[in-house]
């Protein structure tokens, strides 16, 4: 109604770095889950992915927090203040512990796996699953507890984050297994069964992920003004290219179609394309959620 003559702009400081942090913890949690399928749940056909999964999970977990530390203005101070002056009701506090416990557990789990100690691998794998869920789920809680922003403040947020973590993790594993089998094994043949099973899981998870997005947006559009405005901003406004086209069409719908159609799934060309598109789409999803969720001025 009114024309703004003077107002002060909110400094949008949480943008790319924190999105990369969420992205890489997601990839780590996703690849960890794959690695537990055989040792934790006894699904033998996923065994060739286990070692790669755990090594990737650990390496990514050293990379991911670097972005977090770059985002924080006082990285060194934060390393100990987060423990010494801990506030138990802040979502960031859970992360400090999870980011220590989860890599430690993954390393122990990996060591037992490489020693072929089935029993202890299983135990640490099963301990690792709730940790992996928590380490990624808590990033969703961080946003969900930011009650000022309707885009974040939903109970779906941790679940949306978990699913996007799993799909991007599986896409990455598919690509890495292909590269390993093709170039770094004696036989130089790709383990087709494994890739095919992972691709099938990817398809179903993408379907759930899209369903969650649908649930989220249907409620946003029906909800109070602020929620409607942010949904509008994402669907039809300036963010629509990134949200609708890149995140959902390129990142989820097309890859899902590819892995759901058997003829296309069996073709390595299409499968590689689907995995790459999905990984890119999830990266964009992190930026859309973190930055897009707070781009609209609140008052």
């Amino acid at each position: 109604m009114g024309k703004v003559v003077f107002d002060v702009q909110y400094q949008t400081t949480l943008a790319f770095l924190i999105s990369y942090y969420f992205y890489f913890t997601g990839l780590s949690a996703g690849s960890f889950m794959i690695s537990t399928l055989s040792y934790g749940f006894g699904l033998e056909k996923f065994k060739p992915a286990s070692k790669m999964g755990v090594v990737t999970a650990v390496l990514l977990l050293f990379l991911a927090p670097q972005f977090l530390l770059m985002q924080v203005c006082w990285p060194v101070k934060s390393l100990w203040h987060n423990f010494v002056h801990l506030n138990p009701i802040s979502a960031i506090s859970y992360g400090s512990f999870l980011l220590v416990l989860y890599p430690l557990n993954s390393i122990i789990y990996g060591i037992f796996m490489f020693k072929e100690n089935k029993k202890w691998t299983k135990i640490f794998g099963l301990i690792g699953i709730p940790l992996a869920l928590a380490v990624h789920g808590y990033t969703g809680w961080i946003l969900a507890f930011g009650v000022a922003r309707d885009y974040w403040n939903t109970g779906l947020m941790p679940i949306v984050f978990l699913f996007s973590a799993m799909v991007s993790g599986i896409s990455m594993m598919i690509l890495m297994i292909m590269i390993r089998d093709r170039f770094f094994t004696k036989e130089k043949v790709i383990n087709h069964d494994l890739i095919d099973s992972l691709a099938k899981i990817l398809g179903w998870l993408l379907l759930v992920d899209l369903f969650l997005v649908f649930c989220d947006y249907s409620v946003l559009l029906y909800s109070k003004l602020e929620a409607q405005e942010v949904a509008h901003f994402m669907l039809f406004g300036k963010m629509s290219f990134w949200f609708v086209i890149v995140e959902n069409l390129i990142g989820k719908v097309i890859p899902m179609a590819i892995v759901m159609i058997p003829g296309m799934r069996k073709s390595y060309f299409w499968l590689i394309l689907a995995a790459l598109m999905n990984m890119a789409g999830i990266l964009v999803m992190r930026v859309v959620t973190v930055y897009g969720g707070q781009a609209l001025p609140l008052m």
Binding site: T13, V72, C73, S78, G146, V147, A148, L298
Partner: peptide
């Protein structure tokens, strides 16, 4: 002395009254 500059409070305040001090980084 305690603030680490994580900016979580900034994003959470419904009134957007917080800012990052450009010199102090808090």
């Amino acid at each position: 002395h305690l603030c680490v500059g994580c900016k979580y409070c900034m994003a959470s305040c419904p009134y957007e009254v917080r800012y990052i001090h450009p010199q102090k980084g808090i």
